[in-house]
Design a protein around this nucleic acid. Structure first.
Lengths: 206, 206
DNA sequence: TTGACAAGTAAACGATCGTTTACTACAATA
DNA sequence: TATTGTAGTAAACGATCGTTTACTTGTCAA
């Protein structure tokens, strides 16, 4: 992927995330780049091709990130490596890093908004939205909690992940300080609650 | 509002909720109704007028619902009447009813999806999204919990409302049975936790 | 019975859409 | 130095967009 193509993808994604795919014209993308729309077709076959390249680029980034962290790839949905030993502190810090990624990383943040916008238009995009932001991380969290031996892992996963999901929306509204402090409060509460339940469960097993 | 206009709004909202405002053409709306697009202009001045009439219609419904329930209107955001006496059971049942409304009511469900899609395009729509589905219900919940005398009402409001917000997304993915049972589990857990904390707080005050 | 009005149609309007074409400038290579 | 390929432009294409116009039909009150 050349640097020029990458710049097109970034500009297109920025517009897709704000106005959606349909409401973003090829002229809009070209204007954002300071070129004419004809130039886009030197790098991409069509507008749809640009869109699909954005999806592919996100997959690449996801795979890179997973390789770095030695964590399951596939938007945290394939989770055979959930057998790795994890601690509650690991889970909490991983969650904090994930929130930072989906809000602070420019590409990831725009991608998240784009999927939010496009999820109902095409079942495939709906599945991607779930995989990256909905049922995906929820199920992954449940697997991690289950691997710790906690009871009712699904219910606990909802309690753990749902606030992050809500705070994405609060963050996007511009209330970033509130979202950040609410996230910190949530994660510390969750850390304590999970540790207490884990030690209680250990006692019961003696 | 004549019955014909109402039918236009319902058809338009259905399409707006799936494809978004920009990707929905006047021909699409007319086709859904079995008429030609020219007929729409007998009832509405423009496509934008249709969209704004949908917003106005939702406001009306919200006001009706608030009047019926003797509850605060304005998308549950104006909350001077939070001084009403409420019990934890009231809050839980109100939350269940609210979830049923935003998922089961056809108009409300489509409206919720439409706002989800359009929230980033226009700051005014972003504010509406927050008011109906984000910071609005979150703040209202915090006010209710605070009026009960619970400590850390904001943090508890996140723990109480966030699962509902997440389960909207799970519900929309088609996993309705999972969303429903997860909601029930969440509400019963929350009911017990809140009651326990409330009685503990009452004991401490003796 | 007639005439006004409401609700629809078909066709056309200019604007904009995604895409293609013909052409230009320039950098790297043989 | 000659040539080839890359990345751009300007203009045009047909399709579709939101909207307007001229016209038709049916209903109901004067």
């Amino acid at each position: 992927m050349t640097e020029a193509k990458e710049r097109v993808l970034a500009a297109a994604l920025r517009l897709f995330a704000k106005n959606g795919y349909a409401a973003t014209s090829t002229s809009d993308i070209a204007r954002e780049l300071g070129v004419t729309k004809g130039a886009l077709y030197k790098h991409f076959a069509s507008k749809r091709d640009i869109f699909e390249s954005v999806l592919a680029r996100m997959e690449e980034r996801d795979a890179e990130k997973a390789r770095e962290n030695d964590l399951p790839e596939g938007a945290l949905s394939e989770m055979e490596s959930a057998y790795r030993a994890v601690s509650i502190d690991d889970i909490v810090e991983f969650a904090r890093e994930m929130f930072r990624y989906w809000t602070g990383d420019e590409f990831a943040s725009a991608f998240r908004k784009m999927l939010t916008i496009e999820q109902f238009r095409d079942p495939e995009l709906g599945a991607l939205y779930q995989q990256y932001l909905g049922a995906g991380p929820l199920g992954y969290t449940a697997d991690l909690l289950a691997s710790l031996g906690l009871s009712r892992p699904k219910e606990r996963a909802v309690a753990f992940y749902a606030p992050m999901f809500l705070l994405f929306a609060i963050w996007d509204s511009g209330a970033r300080a509130e979202a950040t402090s609410a996230l910190d409060a949530h994660l510390e509460e969750a850390r304590e609650a999970l540790k207490k339940d884990l030690s209680k469960r250990a006692r019961n097993r003696r």
